[in-house]
Amino acid sequence: MTRFGWLNAVSLTFGFAFLYLPILILVIYSFNASKLVTVWGGFSTKWYVALFQNAQLLAAAKMSLLVAVVTATLATVLGTLAAIALTRARRLPARTLFQGMTYAPLVMPEVITGLSLLLLFVALGIDRGFWTITIAHTTFALCFVAVVVQSRLTAFDMSLEEAARDLGASPVKAFCLVTLPLIAPAVAAGWLLAFTLSLDDLVIASFTSGPGSTTLPMRIFSAVRLGVSPEINAASTILIAAVAIGVMTATLAAKWGARRETRSQ
């Protein structure tokens, strides 16, 4: 404990205060009866009530959730396949290109991705709406899934799969019966990551959405451009709570998975 030092303790305290205070303030003020940030007008849940009467916001939330679920599922399948190809294929044609396309979207400025996808949809004559947003989200989310699953696959003990094959399982069977259950926590984490990324995205959705397919971040954005709004604080608080629960579930699931694997080894 003495080894840890006060300097490190101070760094952690300030670091986490910086990371969490703004979010905490946001949550606190969602319960503020007053509309002003600096004035505490007493505890109130009226913004939550107002929120649930805001039909536009609710419709947008529904749209966002739908997009996020479909995106997460598609991205998890595609991302996991990409991860398998990148870790397992010894002679992958044009590996550099594939690798580049998998990693570049992690850092690509969203305006570029959004614009390019929109222009593709226009060129193909596809009407913009639910599916164009979903395809756009799947494209960048699958890369995040691929990275998460790939790091798990690289650390995977190949002798487990070899043992299954030694016992008579075909390569595909061995993968499905042994590897897949053991990398399941990473795949689940990938799904959750893709889900939140999709739920969170403003820029790409703005480019690829059409009339009648406004997502929650787009609504929030147009509201907050005009300044602070307690109703948005309330919406944010609900989102933050949902994420917190999701992250905790995922962490517990990962822990459980890790324990299961150490037990099996």
């Binding site: 946001l26 971040p217 929030i220 907050v224 944010s236 994420v243 999701g246």
Partner: peptide, 10 residues
Amino acid sequence: WTSFLIRVYA
């Protein structure tokens, strides 16, 4: 994992 937009808005 918390909304980027919300964190900036905070």
